Each structure stands twice: as C-alpha cells, then as structure tokens.
Amino acid sequence: MVGEIWASFQRLPLWVRIWMVVILAPVNFAPLFFLGTHPSAIWVAALSVAGMVFNMPILLRQRGFSAALAFPHLVFWAPLVVMLLLRPAPFDGVNGGYATLLIVILVVDVISLAFDSVEAVKWVKGDRTIA
C-alpha cells in the first residue's frame, strides 16, 4: 500500500511534488511549534494540520493521489483563511514570528484553495483518476 501511494506521488508533476513537500506541508505543520505562545495558536494549528491529516484516510483507501484530496483542504483551510482575514479578537496582540507565520499560512492556503477548488470540481464531475 505504501508503495502504491509513493508511486502515485511520483506520477504527480514535479512542481506539484515540490509545492507539497517544500511549501504546503511545512507551512501547515509549522503552527504546532507555536502552541502555547498565543491564544489563537491552538485553532490555527488544529485547522492547519486537520487539512492534511484528514487526507490520510483518502490516500489509504484510494492507494494514491486523486482530486478527492481537495475536500479536507476546503473543509478546514477555508475557515482558517476567513479567520485570518477577519482577524477576530483572539488574534489581538499577535506579533513576531507567529505573526509572520500567519501571513505565510494565509498566502499559501489561499493558493492551495485555488488549486483545490479546481480539483474538487473535477472530482464532482466524475474524475476519480488516481495519479
């Protein structure tokens, strides 16, 4: 099973693999390092990580990468992006490295959600192809 998932990953375009490994995953796991530093950190970490963790059952069931992987991102990262854009009271006093991380998460997840929206539409229209 792991071999099938790895082979599927290798069939993705190089730029997608680089995006996922060098940018997307590290940025969305980074909030774990800020837990306890600010009241908002638990929510940011939970939503950031959930967008990836909930892809695991899909990967395991399908034994590869498909457009279905867009849905956990849409479910968890869309509210995160809205929360970061609106900056409600729990974000008062955010500064330093954590503030920078929030901006990076916002930019990266907005880009990801643009790709994910296209992929979700493909899946809804019947494209169940596994890379």
Rank of each mutant, 00 (worst) to 15 (best):
R11D: 01
V49R: 02
F54D: 02
L113F: 00
G97K: 09
W77C: 07
A25Y: 07
V110A: 15
V16L: 08
T37Q: 15
I5N: 01
W43K: 00
T37F: 15
V81M: 05
W43T: 12
V108E: 00
P31Q: 03
H73A: 10
F71S: 01
A50F: 14
L102P: 06
A120P: 00
V44G: 01
I103Q: 14
R17G: 02
F29W: 04
A46K: 05
R128G: 04
L106V: 02
G93P: 06
P13E: 00
T100Q: 05
A30S: 11
S117C: 09
W77A: 06
L14V: 13
I5D: 01
D127G: 11
W77E: 05
V75R: 01
P90A: 06
S112I: 05
A68E: 08
R11S: 04
M20A: 14
A30H: 07
N28H: 08
A120M: 02
R61S: 13
A45C: 11
V2R: 14
W6K: 11
N28T: 04
R63C: 07
R17P: 04
P90S: 09
A99L: 12
V110K: 13
V94F: 07
T37N: 15
A99S: 12
I130M: 06
G51E: 03
L74D: 01
W77Y: 10
A67V: 11
N55F: 04
V104K: 04
L101E: 06
M20K: 13
G93D: 10
K122A: 08
I5M: 07
I130W: 05
V2Y: 13
Y98T: 13
K122T: 08
V107D: 02
L12Q: 06
S8R: 00
Q10L: 15
N95D: 15
A67K: 11
F54S: 02
A46G: 03
T100N: 11
D116Y: 04
D109V: 13
L32Q: 00
W6R: 13
W19D: 05
I23V: 15
W43S: 05
L47H: 02
Q62L: 14
V21A: 03
V124D: 10
A68V: 03
A41Y: 02
I103E: 15
N95V: 14
G97Y: 09
L102D: 07
N55C: 11
W43I: 10
V44Q: 00
L47E: 01
R11W: 02
F33V: 14
G96S: 09
F115P: 00
V124Q: 08
I105D: 02
F115T: 01
V124K: 06
S48P: 13
P79R: 14
V16T: 12
A99M: 06
F71R: 03
A67W: 04
A46H: 03
G3I: 01
S117K: 01
L102S: 03
A68W: 05
V81H: 09
L14F: 13
T129I: 11
R87H: 14
W43P: 07
L80I: 07
A41T: 04
A114T: 15
V53W: 08
R11C: 02
L84Q: 08
G126W: 04
A70L: 07
Q62W: 13
V110G: 13
Q62K: 11
Q10H: 15
V21D: 00
V53D: 09
D127Y: 10
P39W: 03
A25S: 10
A7V: 09
W19F: 10
L80C: 07
F115V: 07
V104L: 11
